[in-house]
Amino acid sequence: MNEHGVTLLLGTVTTIKVLVCSMILYVIISMIFGLMRLSKNLAIQGIATVYIEFFRGTSLLVQLFWAYYVLPFFGISLEAFTAGVVALGLNFGAYGAEIVRAGILAVPKGQWEAAHALNFNPAKRIKRIIIPQIFPIILPPAANLTVELLKATALVALVTVVDLTFEAKQINSITWLSAQCFGTALLIYYIIARFALVPFLRWLEVLAARKVGKERI
């Protein structure tokens, strides 16, 4: 089991890489599409709505397989890792965009009016007044979503990314020590979620609350 320990560890590193990359991607996408969803321009709003409904309406696994096995039909061959990160980022970006939208709507109207009264232009209004205030609102639901993302990274193993799940499955097929290898994998995911990801996200929440001068939640 010792040699397999190293393999599992390497798999864990890949899982964390997938998690970090897709996290960055999904945060960027959520911001862009969350704002687009609130645009007064019907075309922009329509694009965002179609995107969000499409990615929320189909299953992540289907999107992943589509990105990896179907895109080559159109001449776009992505590496497994890239396909995985892109599919995860696009899927979770759709959910995240809804959170961002709700967060922006939750900023009190008075803030918009005050920014308007101070003659801030629209870009500055969003950037300096609204966006900094949405973080304390959106971070708690975004934290839940990010834990879901960690769990979803396991799916990239199915498009041949050599992550923790892939390694666990591989070791299982060599040793048939199913309880041990899947049990260890479950524990590793649990430890990442409970002792690394969640504390990090809580820390962000506290930071965001402090930034806008709110008491610790």
Binding site: T153, A154, T165, S178, A179, L186, R194
Partner: peptide, 22 residues
Amino acid sequence: VEFIRSTPLLIQLFFVYFVLPQ
């Protein structure tokens, strides 16, 4: 509940499918 909620469904599936026969 915490454990089940923070681990991937995929591995839980493998776990149940491969471990129970043992």
